[in-house]
Design a protein around this nucleic acid. Structure first.
Lengths: 100, 100
DNA sequence: TTTATATTTAGCCTAAATGCTAAATATTCG
DNA sequence: CGAATATTTAGCATTTAGGCTAAATATAAA
């Protein structure tokens, strides 16, 4: 059970929690729109709030595995994990079938 | 602009907020599983927390228009608005297309 | 190795969410 | 009408989330 085992039973929890905040949704949107990756600094400068606040949001997205990060010199590059959004589709599937 | 106008600009906000709590996700799941409608009492008895707590969760789901309610005698019948879940699909669509 | 750049961690504070109990409301039934 | 049932509203207590500033860390450049 590599991706969909009991170990991932809280995927819904993590993903829905991460997507609950507009700043985090906007971070995901923007990383995606910019080609899939962005540095922490580039992300932080989109917002009027402080950089540490952005860092905290990034941590939540990372905990949900919606992004991952890798250092490149003194930059941290955050990359979106698009496929992780399938968790939402999985959840929606419960409602797709005719009621019963 | 009946369904998709500026009046609905915060649909993402309302829906993602509503789905952020496991109790609310479970309420939706169960109403759907039970055929689409359930009384407040039936919903409340699923949980170990107090009934007023459930009522509050129902208010959040209602604000997001994920359920609606109608009185039937002394029961309140909550009905799921399945189509409202399309808001999630709409949001996911932003990521569907090849990055760019 | 000192200095500058990029970013995170720590710790605090406030606001919002969630849960509870008690009281109120609405509807039905005797 | 008065009692019983079904459910919500009010108001309070506690937890969690989100924001800020200051300090720490890591890499690079001089």
């Amino acid at each position: 059970m590599p991706q969909h085992g009991r170990s991932d039973i809280d995927a819904y929890e993590a993903v829905f929690t991460a997507l609950a905040h507009p700043v985090r949704r906007r971070i995901l949107m923007t990383i995606n729109f910019e080609g899939g990756s962005m540095s922490a600094g580039k992300i932080a400068q989109m917002f009027k709030h402080s950089w540490p606040t952005t860092t905290r949001h990034l941590r939540v997205l990372e905990a949900a595995r919606l992004i991952r990060c890798k250092r490149d010199g003194r930059n941290q590059i955050y990359t979106i994990e698009k496929h992780r959004l399938e968790v939402l589709c999985d959840w929606l599937d419960w409602f797709a079938k005719p009621t019963g």
